[in-house]
Nucleic acid binder design. Structure first.
Lengths: 135, 135
DNA sequence: ATGTATGCAAAACATTTGCACCTGG
DNA sequence: CCAGGTGCAAATGTTTTGCATACAT
């Protein structure tokens, strides 16, 4: 139940937060922008402001419930956090997003950070291309 | 000489283009935002509009004279293109940007795209961390 | 009750665009 | 001369914020 997740995350259980979480959990589309979530809310008859959607998603990110991807600069999409780190492949034609995990890359990144004297805190990797269906 | 580079890139040699290119070539700071370039122009006494700086940088990108990096979503910086592909390490404290090349990662990316049926067109990899001097 | 959350409208921000004017070849 | 480039101001799209009101605990 969503209320539990919210309470555990230290967030007060409010209608907008429950509804946004419901949308994220029930969508077939794993990656949604704030606007997408907002539209989905309107479609399910919820009167929630776009500003609130942004606020809620940002809080969810802070609480570790979702993660934010920054696609092509100036457009964020959110995905439910499932604990498993992964990177993304994006189709530049249909905007499909696929996920992948690659231990070799993960390890090399750590090695590079070390070499350069950086304490790695995060990384972002996007592979852009044309997916099977769009070729 | 800058005029040559511009002509070769198929761009008419105009004052704004020459000046922007000069800034990029003479700055110690390899990575500059449009705003940075604009300010540098003002400081060197050039009256060039910010809109023009954006237009020029975009044309330069198209012509392969510079490449555009999209840092943390919604803020682009430009670097002179030197022909060598590389990725970036960013210090989250001092905003320093370092470059690196890693063939293992490059190759793995290609392999992943292939596996997923994507025809890879591009990729972006940023490692975030705290640099030696900021730790 | 009371501190937090929300809605709305307005602001912020980086970037782009329309249009009249200017300029390079 | 004339296509293309520029400056300015206004528009854009996304995200954030101020503030008065509403709500969860």
């Amino acid at each position: 139940m969503e209320s539990q997740d919210l309470r555990q995350a230290g967030l007060k259980v409010t209608l907008p937060r429950v509804k946004v979480l419901e949308i994220l959990e029930n969508t077939t589309q794993r990656h949604m922008s704030a606007e997408d979530v907002y539209k989905a809310l309107l479609e399910s008859g919820e009167e929630i402001g776009l500003a609130t959607v942004y606020r809620v998603l940002t809080q969810f990110e802070g609480a570790g419930l979702v993660s934010r991807l920054s696609i092509d600069g100036g457009h964020a999409v959110f995905e439910l956090e499932d604990g498993s780190h992964h990177d993304h492949l994006l189709c530049i034609k249909c905007n499909r997003i696929e996920e992948f995990v690659d231990d070799v890359i993960e390890q090399r990144q750590r090695a590079i950070a070390l070499e350069k004297g950086f304490e790695m805190t995060d990384h972002s990797l996007y592979i852009y291309g044309i997916c099977r269906d769009c070729q």
